[in-house]
């Protein structure tokens, strides 16, 4: 069967499109909703165009991690919304994944630098104590 959202072929038993993540109609070739079933019982169509762009996370890592990786995430966030507007949801999903990856890179590197800073502080305090013990003759 083919995904009605992005048009790519998917396996017949898949509930979600492997390509774009859209909810697939299980009755291949059948009506888009079962007869007599109110549309609101169908898969929520608002869900399938819910492509997160990670803009807020990108802003957060830009502010708090002080690294250019947050800027890259903002670029991807802008592209996600561009693809959603033009209806290219498969590409929007791909760019959304990129935005998420860059947010995590920025967060991870920022966290690593922070931990490294605390280790250096702790070691310098220990080294300072050692020096104090030596000079006190203990």
């Amino acid at each position: 069967m083919f995904c009605s959202t992005c048009g790519r072929e998917t396996s017949d038993e898949a509930r979600y499109c492997e390509n774009c993540g859209a909810v697939l109609d299980q009755q291949a070739g059948g009506p888009s909703y079962a007869p007599g079933m109110p549309p609101q019982d169908q898969p929520r169509y608002g869900e399938r165009i819910d492509v997160p762009n990670y803009l807020v996370q990108a802003i957060l890592v830009t502010i708090f991690c002080c690294l250019p990786a947050g800027i890259v995430a903002i670029v991807f966030a802008a592209q996600v919304n561009g693809r959603v507007r033009s209806g290219d949801l498969a590409d929007a999903q791909r760019l959304s994944g990129n935005a998420r990856t860059w947010c995590w890179i920025s967060f991870g590197v920022g966290l690593a630098i922070g931990l490294l800073y605390f280790l250096v502080i702790i070691f310098s305090v220990i080294a300072g104590l050692g020096g104090a013990f030596q000079s006190s003759g203990l």
């Binding site: 762009n53 803009l55 802003i59 830009t62 800027i71 903002i74 670029v75 966030a77 802008a78 592209q79 919304n81 561009g82 959603v84 507007r85």
Partner: peptide, 16 residues
């Protein structure tokens, strides 16, 4: 809210 992509590109320019 679905922000217009131009707004996010504007934000990028603002940050830089």
């Amino acid at each position: 809210v679905l922000l217009h992509p131009a707004l996010i590109w504007g934000l990028l320019v603002a940050v830089l």
